[in-house]
Simulated scan of single mutants.
Amino acid sequence: MNEEIDMTRIPRHIAMIMDGNGRWAAERGKPRSYGHQAGVDTVRRITAECTRLGVKFLTLYTFSTENWSRPADEVSALMGLVLSSLEDEIFMKNNVRFRVIGDIDRLPDDVQQKLRETEEHTAGNDTMTMVVALSYSARWEITQAVKRIIDERDPALHPLKMHIQPFHVTEDVISSHLETSFMPDPDLLIRTGGEVRVSNFLLWQIAYSELYFCDTYWPDFNEQDLHKAIADYQRRQRRFGKTEDQIENENQSE
């Protein structure tokens, strides 16, 4: 059964924790890499559907800094999948711009080069921006942002700038130094696979995001599942700390 969604209220930015690839493969007696490959096919389908619906930003949690502790063969297979999935078709066919966030310097050289090439090649696409979080964790990101702020105000590095003072550090300043400074915060965060946690993903940015968890493993997540998540999002009232009466008055004045 398809969920009815309001096409005038599509989330501008959807973030996804694509969980369940390994368990999906294990239930079929296959290695974890088999599940990751199936997950890439899901990425293609969901990307195409998000562009059709009018989503402007799609951020995918692909490989966390914690994932470096996984078995070497699985990490190697995942890096190979990253290379094979960065093909022109998924981006050029859907007019999608590609961006990457994370500790990219830890990735193999050939992966880094392919990421840069894909970013450059798709820079002119403007229907949607797909952001892939690779070697990423939110605590790492926030730590890096603080370091950048301090460096910019360090007289030893920048003699013409004053030493940083507490009043220099505002929410806007921190946001502008995050990996995601080029895009709005997520409206909706979806996690597949049955786990109910955010796993160190976009901790700063999801402060007011709507969270949606489902049991479906990522390889089985389809367009109907996406519609169900968006329909659930649209049934919620986003108050951002305001009362229901305040929201209603604001809506009436528009």
Rank of each mutant, 00 (worst) to 15 (best):
V43K: 00
R44F: 04
I46C: 03
T47K: 01
T47E: 03
A48L: 07
E49D: 05
E49R: 14
C50D: 07
L53I: 08
G54L: 12
K56A: 14
F57I: 15
F57Q: 09
T59N: 10
T59A: 12
T59Y: 09
L60M: 15
Y61P: 07
F63P: 12
S64I: 06
T65M: 09
E66A: 08
N67Y: 02
N67W: 02
W68H: 08
W68P: 08
A72P: 01
A72H: 06
D73T: 14
E74S: 12
L78K: 10
M79F: 14
L81E: 04
V82M: 15
V82Q: 09
V82P: 09
S84Q: 13
S84Y: 01
S85K: 00
D88Y: 10
D88C: 08
N95Q: 13
N95M: 03
V96K: 00
R97V: 07
F98D: 06
F98Y: 13
R99L: 02
R99Q: 10
V100P: 00
V100C: 14
I101P: 01
G102T: 05
G102P: 02
D103A: 11
D103W: 08
D103K: 10
I104F: 02
I104R: 13
D105P: 01
P108W: 01
P108L: 01
P108Y: 01
D109L: 06
V111G: 07
K114R: 15
R116F: 04
R116C: 04
E117K: 12
T118V: 10
E119L: 04
E120G: 06
E120M: 11
E120D: 13
H121W: 04
H121V: 06
T122H: 06
G124V: 04
T127D: 12
T127K: 10
T127L: 09
T127C: 04
M128P: 03
M130L: 11
V132F: 07
S135L: 00
Y136F: 05
Y136M: 04
S137L: 04
S137D: 08
R139E: 08
E141F: 06
E141R: 06
I142N: 00
T143L: 03
T143D: 02
A145P: 02
K147T: 00
R148E: 09
D151C: 09
D151S: 12
E152A: 12
R153S: 10
D154F: 01
